[in-house]
Design a protein around this nucleic acid. Structure first.
Length: 787
DNA sequence: GTTTCTAATATTTTT
DNA sequence: TATTAGAAAC
């Protein structure tokens, strides 16, 4: 194996094939590269690919590793098991889960399903969900499973007070329900695998023998269960190579235990430890800042990133008057970078929480900047998509009560809540599944209800038969047609934008099925459902999209951009209000900041708002403590027009007609050259129906065809794209005569003139076909388009 | 049984 | 601000 492309440290790590190895890989130090070469090196030393296991946290990381290994070592590497903890466990369980008393076609319950079960149980047990929120229960369930505690052990640890006792009651029933439904939650995938190993030594023995070389990526994020799983697998071979960075441990609140990586050398005294500190991503200034910030944490493995590259630009810092000013500053800089030749796809805006994205979106949209928001509601989380999925899950596993009760009256077929409740109760009393009850409804049901239930049961029975006969795609099509999943939305109204979007989403789902059928080796319904459960949108993110990316700091881990904007750098937001209480939490926030800073290759922009409207409350937060932790010499402070003596040239032209910050006291904000400005107004002219996901992944009507930013084609993964914002009739739009715009109904047109201010602002637009039309600027469904 | 309205409530979320 | 769950009205 030729390792000359690696630096000395990387090479050393890739050469150490035997025994426990800890690679402490700082951000941007070529971690994946090193791991990839190591695996390729194993292969070149004659280790068969099927003896190699690599565990990651994201599908993206897994796929990337797989591809890179195959590129280095050829297609033979395909026999290695490279996947997420969850998917590998799923694979192991699918083979042997019958030994634990489950059937092989088990269903995977996601967080939403889990919540549903818990809510139902709280109701049954007559527990007030204000006294005991479902989230508390699911957190407890997760906690117990992550720590491999039995429910009784968990209760003991929780001091056994009254509330814990109640939680314990719910947990116990929850476990019974899932078992009866032949379902596993995410944490079960890990826990049951370990249980399988412990209860059935021959199974463990098989995998121990098989996987002679085990790798774990992002080791700092492992929880106790994952730690044990790895320990069990490598007990005999002791060939365990873990890669991670304690400074990037940001999932402690989810059970990740940073001690796993900190104590690796205690667990394996003979471990070979190597640090990768040379950074290939960022400029020296950015690294300097990152190093200084993270140095404030205690109890970490000393590391200092360095680079051979130059200092680069200073880090820009902007004290915005409010969140709109902040967004405008960001948009202006994005515009300037783009004008200087940087592609949209090389820039990202990061924030601590999704709630901060709204203002950014509005501003970007008005500025004509193509953007995309990652995270939040995913494609497969949309109601209409989940409905189809629920059908499919019942077809695969009729014992799945949660899914069945979801669809029993979707589309509406006159099986009301009381009927469902009656049958559910009957099912529980007789220890049978809801499906069985539906198939043979009890006589206590009224005649009308019974009839509806029977015809539903007949339809489902048909589907179960079809499952055996039809290929996946045809089966799904049959379900959509015969259950009337599209028809229900067509009936409700053709021109209703929301219904249109839902229909489009269902079609989109169909094409996802088709794509799966074409690409996947295993074309079974089970495999498809597993894929849906374990693969997220973030995994499908394009490498170089033509959009500015907006996402939370958490989702940014592992990614890099030429220019990164860290917004909302305020105490109480970042670090979050809760984190400032405890020192431990603050350290994790600091690591999150470190992660954010080290995403940037060339340019880093920090901003905070002195006044911020959040959750309908005005906040006045001091700048984030993390800003103070960056040496002044690395910063270049920028000021808004109000603070500035002379306007800067170039991209921004200042003045305008005086946009006023919200709340409207005297300060004049710069108009960053998005055309003529109009006094700002809020909360007026909203298109009924709300905002955001309602528009779904796909824009409706004319906006779809517009060559506009956002998500015109409805690609999954876009939570709140362009269309949603547009449909809302935003507060203020900046247009000037000559601008090309797109109207939702009339299509493309040219702005004639803009008159009036505030609510009276009118815009006159000339349309090629419809002629000149005048709209109230505040509510007109128009957006600016580029020629 | 279904639709519509009101009121509470809101970190982060690899699977 | 916007969503969403649950109650009240249809």
């Amino acid at each position: 194996m030729d390792l000359k492309d690696l630096n000395p440290m990387q090479r050393r790590a890739a050469e150490q094939l035997e025994g426990p190895v800890l690679i402490l890989a700082g951000a941007g130090s070529g971690k994946t590269r090193t791991l990839t070469y190591r695996v390729a090196n194993l292969l070149s030393h004659g280790v068969p690919a099927w003896r190699i296991l690599a565990l990651t946290f994201t599908n993206k990381a897994a796929r990337e590793m797989q591809e890179r290994i195959e590129r280095l070592a050829g297609a033979g590497a395909g026999d290695a098991w490279i996947g997420t903890f969850h998917s590998i466990c799923c694979r192991i369980l699918r083979r042997d889960i019958e030994k634990l008393g489950y059937e092989r076609n088990f269903t995977i319950y996601d967080d939403d399903d889990q919540q549903r079960v818990i809510k139902a149980l709280l109701k049954e047990l007559d527990i007030d969900d204000k006294y005991l929120p479902p989230k508390t229960v699911s957190a407890a369930i997760s906690d117990a499973k992550n720590r491999l505690l039995s429910l009784d052990e968990w209760l003991k640890e929780a001091h056994g007070d009254y509330k814990s006792q109640k939680i314990h009651d719910v947990m116990t029933r929850y476990e019974q329900r899932l078992r009866a439904a032949n379902a596993l939650d995410f944490d079960d995938l890990l826990m049951k695998t370990i249980q399988l190993f412990l209860d059935h030594p021959p199974v463990l023995d098989y995998y121990q023998q098989r996987f002679q070389y085990v790798h774990v990526d992002e080791y700092q994020d492992t929880n106790y269960a994952q730690y044990q799983l790895v320990r069990l697998l490598t007990k005999e071979s002791r060939n365990l190579c873990v890669v991670g960075d304690d400074d990037q441990s940001i999932y402690g609140w989810r059970g990740a235990d940073i001690r796993n990586i900190l104590d690796f050398e205690k667990d394996y005294p003979d471990a070979f430890v190597i640090k990768l500190e040379q950074n290939y991503r960022s400029t020296a200034n950015i690294l300097d800042a990152a190093n200084q910030i993270i140095a404030h944490n205690e109890g970490r493995k000393e590391k200092e990133l360095w680079t051979e590259d130059g200092e680069g630009e200073k880090i820009a810092l902007y004290a915005a008057a409010d969140e709109r000013d902040e967004a405008a500053w960001i948009a202006a800089n994005i515009g300037r970078l783009h004008a200087a030749g940087m592609g949209w796809g090389h820039m990202a805006i990061l924030y601590r929480m999704h709630a901060l994205s709204r203002v950014l979106e509005e501003t970007l949209m008005r500025a004509g900047i193509a953007y995309r928001v990652y995270g939040g509601t995913r494609f497969y989380d949309r109601k209409e998509v989940r409905d189809i999925l629920a059908y499919l899950r019942v077809i695969e596993n009729p014992a799945d009560d949660v899914s069945l009760s979801r669809i029993i009256n979707v589309p509406k077929r006159a099986i009301g809540d009381s009927t469902v409740e009656q049958m559910t109760e009957f099912a529980h009393r007789n220890d049978m599944s809801l499906y069985a009850t539906v198939a043979a409804p009890p006589d206590t049901l009224g005649g009308r209800a019974k009839k509806s239930v029977q015809s539903f049961a007949n339809m489902m029975a048909q589907f179960l038969i079809a499952r055996e006969m039809l290929p996946l795609g045809e089966l799904v099509q049959k379900v959509i047609d015969e259950a009337g999943l599209i028809a229900q939305y067509e009936k409700e109204g053709e021109q209703d934008e929301e219904n249109q979007a839902r229909i489009e989403n269902i079609r989109e789902f169909m094409s996802a099925v088709t794509e799966f059928e074409q690409k996947s080796e295993d074309k079974t319904l089970f495999a498809f459902l597993e894929n849906v459960a374990l693969v997220t949108e973030l995994d499908n993110q394009e490498d170089t999209p033509n959009f500015v990316t907006l996402m939370t700091l958490h989702s940014a881990k592992g990614l890099e951009y030429d220019a990164v904007f860290l917004s909302g750098m305020e105490e109480g937001i970042f670090p979050s209000a809760r984190a400032t209480q405890e020192e431990n939490r603050l350290e994790e926030e600091r690591r999150l900041c470190y992660v954010g800073v080290t995403r940037a290759r060339k340019y880093l922009y920090l901003s905070y708002a002195q006044r911020r409207m959040l959750f309908n409350q005005m906040q006045f937060n001091p700048p984030s403590c993390f800003i103070r932790e960056i040496p002044k010499r690395l910063l270049r402070e920028e000021y808004g027009a109000a603070q500035r003596s002379a306007p800067g040239g170039g991209w921004g032209s200042y003045g305008g007609s005086g946009m006023r910050p919200q709340g409207g006291y005297g300060q004049v904000r710069p108009n960053y050259g998005f055309g003529d400005s109009v006094p700002q107004r809020r909360g007026v002219g909203r298109v009924p129906g709300g905002y955001g996901n309602r528009a779904g992944a796909v824009g409706a009507g004319g906006s779809r065809t517009a060559a506009t930013p956002g998500n015109p084609l409805g690609i999954p993964g876009v939570q709140r794209g362009f269309v949603g914002s547009q449909a809302r009739g935003i507060d203020i739009q900046l247009f000037k005569p000559g601008d090309k715009v797109m109207h939702r109904k009339y299509g493309k047109g040219t702005v004639r003139e803009v008159t009036g201010t505030g609510e009276n602002a009118r815009i006159s637009i000339l349309f090629p076909v419809f002629g000149e039309k005048v709209f109230a600027l505040s509510i007109a469904p128009i957006v600016k388009v580029e020629e």
